[in-house]
Write a protein that binds this DNA or RNA. Structure first.
Lengths: 246, 246
DNA sequence: TGTACATCAGTGAACGCGCGTTCACTGATGTAC
DNA sequence: TGTACATCAGTGAACGCGCGTTCACTGATGTAC
């Protein structure tokens, strides 16, 4: 009984904090992050605008909280999609993870635009957003690394560059992965391909949500799935795991 | 001598029109399209805000003019990059065209964000922007189609789907290409791959300009070139043309 | 070439609006004795 | 359990700001005769 129960005040504070964020998020659906007005959010919650300052020091602080919340929500959805499948089923995991990204984005277009659209002019995301932002990427890398470790490289990707040549381009990623202990021995060529695939997945979702696929893509869901399958090919991720007992 | 010389008024009008657009563009570098203020633009040009209404009926009209201007400028840059090379050198054309996209984007980040970033809330681009927007895509398709026509398919892309299966996903693109007479006989698999590559190219540029490659990519130019080379591979575009006389 | 009228680019004041942030205040909740 | 004081969530007025758009006006430019 060392943990004191939270006071009514503390509970209320947490509830209001959450409802401010919720109101801000729902505004994001119809207006961009740069237009997000603290006064309007306060109005939605039913407070006077100055009361919001008891919870967020400034409009920028509110934006940062939204950024962290959204990155974490997306990251959690992606991690859950990955965790639901057998570790050996790398192909299944790959498509589940990619689909989770798109599903979240389609369900939360405003939040997606906040995370992956044009940066908010004059706002600089603080370092505290970096960790939540990397959760999704970690999952993508891990799936590819597992596929590679399991020996399912397939014919591709054949190294197109001589060893070491990619270091100048993607050295930061290699260093980061080694530091974090994520697939430290993944070949450079595959690291490059993961970065490409990561970009393509978010690129396809951006194009869909930002209206660039009108007139070209007739079924966004089907198109996305085809793209994900091609990416799996390019990454050397082959059919469902049949590795037996090992 | 049927063509009358333009009057001083007409000349002045054109000059002012252009300088308003130029001022608006330069503002885009430091603020988003949604923040773009007609009054601020007028101030930059040295006019009173109401004078701008002699040139643009509203703020939205100014945005539309910017959109068309930028799409056309990017399209022209890409077309020029393509036209500078021998038709047979499909690999050279591919990388030149992709580089032209990135070069323009890096030189005009604000304009790139206008075209390919989050949509401006409440603004709907009118149909007059569609044609300029498609110029860049046309060039990409044409290069791939030329590579295919020249018989440089390489081993890839092997059709991953049975014939016709992609129709549901990318039927609109196929119909559009047939209507426009752009490579009407390009296999569906290759059409899908062109759409993917298009998305990846713009995705890589977006990630670079919007700050998502920090900590992963150490040299954006080198990384971009590697990506473009992989895309050429995936599209079956092989080395410089050696087709001889034919 | 000269005059009378029409066109139209640019002015300046005004409209009603919403914004972020501050500040002194009130009243309810929490804490120490 | 009861009282005295401290904390702190929320209020409401105020600040100074910039925005898009309208409107009656002026004076220069263009046109018809």
């Amino acid at each position: 009984m060392e943990t004191k129960p939270p006071t009514a005040r503390a509970l209320a504070r947490e509830a209001v904090h959450a409802s401010i964020l919720a109101a801000a998020r729902s505004r994001l659906t119809h207006e961009g992050p740069a237009q997000l007005a603290l006064r309007a959010v306060a109005r939605d919650v039913g407070m006077v605008s100055s009361a919001v300052y008891r919870y967020f020091a400034s409009r920028d602080d509110l934006l940062t909280a939204l950024l962290v919340l959204d990155y974490d929500e997306l990251g959690a959805a992606v991690e859950a999609a990955d965790a639901a499948l057998d570790r050996d089923d790398v192909a299944g995991r790959w498509s589940a993870v990619c689909r989770a990204i798109r599903t979240w984005a389609v369900a939360h277009p405003g939040d997606f635009a906040l995370l992956y659209g044009s940066p908010v002019p004059g706002y600089v995301a603080p370092p505290s957003t970096i960790e939540p932002a990397s959760r999704t990427t970690h999952v993508l890398i891990r799936v590819v690394a597992d596929a590679w470790t399991a020996g399912r490289r397939g014919a591709r990707p054949a190294p197109t560059s001589p060893p070491g040549e990619l270091q100048a381009a993607i050295g930061d990623a290699v260093v980061y992965m080694r530091e974090q202990g994520i697939a430290p021995d993944l070949p450079d060529e595959l690291v490059l391909r993961v970065l490409m695939a990561w970009t393509t997945v978010f690129g396809v979702v951006s194009f869909e949500l930002f209206g660039h696929t009108v007139g070209a893509v007739s079924d966004d869901t089907a198109y996305f799935d085809h793209v994900v399958a091609r990416l799996a090919d390019d990454l050397g991720i082959t059919g469902p795991g049949t590795t037996g007992v090992g």
